[in-house]
Design a protein around this nucleic acid. Structure first.
Lengths: 227, 227
DNA sequence: GCCATTTTGATCGTATACGATCTGTGATAC
DNA sequence: GTATCACAGATCGTATACGATCAAAATGGC
């Protein structure tokens, strides 16, 4: 029966997992802002479950670095100062660069065509600029370039980095005017490197620099605003 | 009272944490070999605790990649084929290389002296070769080089990589004759790079290559034995 | 004899309950 | 008025209990 499948689909995720994504999205959208105290019983009440799955969800979030946890005290949404964004971007620059280089040999012309199509959409997006949409496309573009990475650990680190970024800041591009345009140009450069079968080192360097430049742009823009 | 402090110290670690390290060490020393079925109730019985902390311990181990977990089925010690070792070493080469390069500016002459002293011990160790001891010293040496890394995320990734390695293989050097000697020589090269304030890129490349060469040595040795 | 179905046992997931621990408040001594 | 201590409330950590789920053995039909 249809209702059966529906029920099963709802249940196919454990309550712990549902609690996890529920809390996670509330952190992402700012309902629970940094420093917010997460109380197990309270969350359990809101979710209509017991504290056990909530507890597990919190520990998962802790492993992701989204919340801090102190024994016998409780959990808080992780405070992220500006250095947090810096470190996350720096880490991502390294692992994503490596993942892209390792992916390169497996990337087919069809993949490059798809990435280029996404980049075209990003160009269109520049006109009536929607930072959120732009960031989504940005992830889709880069995903094409690194998803073929044969090393599952590195790939996992890249995913974690991106996940962290989405929580830290909905879109960097909304903060740094001009970076979006420079970014799509660098994307085309990356694609051309792949097409001409550049060395892994060239690709890794380019991919890393692409991210580092976004970070640098953010920092210098922030500094200019401070003075 | 003394017994009071003792009790408190024992309790200062939660049962979940104790279960975690207990199971972990049993995986590391091979008592629980890859594929071994980890049953919550059974482990709880052996540890003299209830299943709840054991469950949490298992989830932690899962996050570390030491066990696989399937909903409503249970946990197994992760199977690691040879590719697993390859991927772990490759990942570590990348993050450790980056961490070492980022550490470089903060490394003092005293640190280099300490690392050099450790490397001397490794040279001594070559005579009456003890792989386990050699690997311990190897970690100590590299720790000096990367522990100053200002980026906590990258540092954490390096720690995870090393932790994973100790579980995968007690010592690579016991497998690959000759690599130990080459390794200590490369260590000295690394130290000299640091002393002459080489560029971050040079240091990162050297540190990464150092690890990659250990991996390559292992692979080619293994291939030679297969034929 | 073989395949589909049912049943059964083991194990996991979650709820509830209680003891342990921490943080903050109020009283008391100085 | 300030510092120290004791107490109370809140919250966490863990034990126990039960319902949910899965895998494999037993049963029945073909």
């Amino acid at each position: 029966m249809a209702s059966d499948t529906l029920t099963r689909n709802l249940d196919s995720q454990s309550k712990a997992q549902r609690a996890h994504s529920w809390i996670r999205s509330r952190i992402a959208d700012g309902t629970y802002s940094p420093g917010y105290r997460l109380v197990l019983g309270q969350l359990a009440g809101e979710l209509g479950v017991s504290v056990v799955p909530v507890r597990e969800a919190i520990r998962l979030l802790e492993a992701e670095g989204l919340v801090t946890f102190e024994r016998n005290v409780g959990a808080h949404v992780a405070m992220h100062d500006d250095t947090e964004y810096f470190f996350t971007m720096q880490t991502l620059s390294i692992v994503e660069g490596a993942a892209t280089a390792l992916s390169a040999p497996s990337i087919l012309p069809a993949d490059i065509a798809r990435a280029r199509a996404v980049n075209e959409l990003m160009v269109d997006c520049l006109e009536h600029f929607d930072p959120h949409r732009f960031t989504e496309l940005n992830l889709e573009f880069h995903s094409v370039l690194f998803e073929s990475c044969p090393n599952p650990h590195i790939l996992d680190l890249v995913h974690r980095g991106w996940a962290r970024l989405t929580v830290l800041r909905d879109s960097t591009f909304s903060f740094v005017p001009g970076r979006a345009k420079a970014s799509v140009l660098e994307h085309e450069d990356l694609l051309q490197l792949l097409e001409r079968d550049a060395t892994p080192l060239e690709i890794e360097t380019a991919a890393r620099a692409h991210r580092t430049r976004t970070l640098d742009a953010f920092i210098s823009y922030q500094e200019s605003r401070h003075s």
